[in-house]
Amino acid sequence: MSNGVGQHSRLMRLLSRITPLVCLLPPVLVAQAISDIRIVTPREFGYTIGETIRHEMHLSLAGTYRLDTTTLPTSGRLNHWLEISRAEAQIEHRNNGVTYHIVVDYQIFNAPRQLTSVTIPQLEFLTTGEANSIPVFLPAWTFTIGPITPSDADEIISLRPDRKPQPIPVITRRVRLIISTLLLVGLLIYFVYRRLLLPRLERDRYPFSEALLELRKLQRRDADPEIYRRGLQTFHAAMNATAGRVVFTANLQDFLAANSKFAMLKTELVALYARSQDIFFKNAEVAESATSLQELVELCRRCRRLERSVA
């Protein structure tokens, strides 16, 4: 059934065969580049939906001429009837050149209601040498496709609807996605806990730790009565946070009774509150700020140790 073109070695005979396949180039150039070309096509009739048609071209190039493989057609739909399922070229080296075995597979994916003639359009490949490029054509090819049902099929048989696409098995990917998502959510939760929640919990649970950090920051600045006042306010804030309410001189004893672990600092705390009262409410002068702030830091450090201890 093959319609293959026979091999001839003589230049003129070759040229006469391939002339329709190349463009209007000087015949000498074509002869220098293409030493042989052979096209193999299958039968031209008796096809039905789903069958494949293979076109082969065996192209022998002389000298430095090579096929530009980027000019091969890409896979995909070609027209109403056909799609290209494969297009590739294999190279075979010879002494005086190379031979390309080009294969183009077409698949019929449509079924006519009656016998129909279909043409595969001409394909063009490019061969390039040192000085020029020479196109090579795979000529148009016409064949017939037959129906798979009688023309009056609608009346005598009921056609089944198109088969639904089979779902791609994605269970592995789905499991991976779930695991990745869970992992990501876990990481996010950990991040929120570590960066946002934990510091807040620490601050609520250990107010003196927070206050100590603040006081150390204040210590790095120049000694100043205003800095000492801010230090006192920081310490008071830690006391208030520990008590869950504002602690004044008047209810300091209640604080010590409710937070017995601070009882050992009673003398220092009473003195501090008295000093704070003098400074804030009696407008007493603040002296020896640096030393006082150091004492405040030391008291805060002792309070921090106590707040972390078990009562």
């Binding site: 006042r229 208030n240 309410r245 504002v246 004044f248 804030f280």
Partner: peptide, 8 residues
């Protein structure tokens, strides 16, 4: 209010 508003 007395429990919550700090002084100083």
């Amino acid at each position: 209010i007395l429990q919550s508003v700090a002084a100083p």
